[in-house]
Write a protein that binds this DNA or RNA. Structure first.
Lengths: 189, 189
DNA sequence: TGTCAAAATTGATATATGTCAAGAAATCAG
DNA sequence: CTGATTTCTTGACATATATCAATTTTGACA
C-alpha cells in the first residue's frame, strides 16, 4: 500500500479495491517553494494531497494579505467553492516549502462517482467534517482572546511554530504580528 | 406546490417528482417560543426547516452562553455533527419566537438516498455551500473590526435587529452587549 | 394597566490589541 | 561567507473593546 493509499484510508473508510480506484487517479508531482497551486480569481480545477511540505491559503483584501489557513502534510488542499461550483477562486494557494503533492484533476475527480459507488457518500462526510471544524473555529473567535487562540494553536499544531513564518500564523489567528510576538515572548519567558 | 416545496426548490435544483419525494417526508409542527429543538449533549435526530419564526443556535462555555447563529425563516436548522455522525450535540437549538417548522427525522432523511438517486449529490452541494459561508465568516473575524462586522450584519440581515434580543446578536458577532450598544448608538445618531 | 424582571444603555475605568517606528535577528542570493 | 532583504522584536503610544456598576427602557404577564 502506497503512502497515498494509507493517507486516503485515514480520511475515507473504504476497502482496498476502492482505495486503489481512488488513489490511482492522483498524480504525484513536485513543486518548488513559493510556487502557486492556485491564484485568486482563476478557476480551481485541482485537488491536491500534501505528501510533504506546507501550503498557505490566503486572500488579498484591501492590499493586505489575510492568511486563512496553513495546510500541512497529510491533508488536502483546494478552493472548495471554485472546485465544486466553478466560481472564480477566492484563495491563493502558495507553497511555503518545496512540496510533494498528489494531485487529482476535477474531471477525473468527478468520474469517481461512476467508478466508486460510495464516493458521494464519502465526499459528503468529508465535507461535513470540514464544516464542523470551521464551526469550531468561528466559535473560538466568538469567545476567546488572541492569547487563548495562540495557546490553542500551540497545543494543537506546535510544529507550525517552527516551520511557518510567524506573520502568517498571526494573520491566521486574527491578530497583528506585533501582538503575536508579544504573546510569544510571554509564553516562552 | 406547497410553501415547503417552494423553499426546497430554492435550495435544491430538482424536478417536481423528486421535490415531492423530499417534501413529503417533512412533517409540519408548531413549537412555542422558548422551546428547545435540541439540547447540548443530547443526540440530534432531526433536521428542521423554518417556515416562520427564529431559532437561536448557542452553546454554554464556562457558564456563559455563546450564540453561534440565529436561523431565520426559509432556512434549515440542525446540529450537523450530531445529525451526521451521531455524536453528542454541541449546540442548543432554542426558538426565539413561536415557530412553524417542517421537521424530518434522521431515519426518514437517510432513506432519501434510496428513493432519490440524486440525493447524495444535492446533500453534498448543500453542505459545501454551508462550508463556504462559514469560510467567509472566519475570514471576517480575521480582518474586520467589531464595528465592521456590525455594519455587515446590518446590511445583510437588517431584519434581525428588530426581531432578536441584541445581546444574542452581539454574542454572534463576537463582542459584548455594551460594545454592541455603543456601536449601535454611533450608527444611529 | 401596573408591576416586575430582563434587556439595553451609559459612564468610568481597565485591559487588550493595534499602529508606527526603530533596531535586532534570521534568511536568502550571490 | 557576506551583504542585502525580509522577518521578528521591542518600545512608546493610540485606539478598540471589555469590565463593572448604575440607570433607564422594554416587555411579559398577573
Amino acid at each position: 500500500m502506497t503512502d497515498l493509499q494509507l493517507y486516503i484510508k485515514n480520511f475515507f473508510d473504504v476497502n482496498d479495491e476502492l482505495l486503489y480506484e481512488i488513489a490511482s487517479r492522483f498524480v504525484p508531482r513536485q513543486v518548488n517553494k513559493g510556487d502557486f497551486l492556485l491564484k485568486q480569481g482563476r478557476q480551481c480545477n485541482q485537488l491536491s494531497f500534501i505528501k510533504s511540505g506546507l501550503v498557505r491559503i490566503y486572500t488579498n483584501i484591501e492590499d493586505k494579505e489575510v492568511t486563512q489557513w496553513i495546510s500541512t502534510q497529510g491533508y488536502f488542499v483546494t478552493d472548495l467553492a471554485s472546485f465544486t461550483f466553478n466560481t472564480p477562486a477566492r484563495w491563493n494557494l502558495q507553497t511555503l516549502t518545496d512540496c510533494e503533492l498528489y494531485t487529482i484533476e476535477k474531471d477525473s475527480y468527478n468520474q469517481l462517482i461512476d467508478v466508486v459507488p460510495e464516493w458521494l457518500q464519502l465526499e459528503k462526510l468529508f465535507i461535513a467534517k470540514c464544516f464542523i471544524i470551521l464551526e469550531e473555529r468561528v466559535n473560538r473567535h466568538l469567545f476567546m482572546t488572541a492569547e487563548e487562540r495562540y495557546n490553542q494553536l500551540m497545543e494543537q499544531q506546535p510544529e507550525l511554530f517552527n516551520q511557518v513564518p510567524l506573520q502568517y500564523l498571526s494573520s491566521m489567528l486574527g491578530m497583528t504580528p506585533e501582538t503575536f510576538s508579544r504573546i510569544r515572548k510571554k509564553q516562552l519567558g
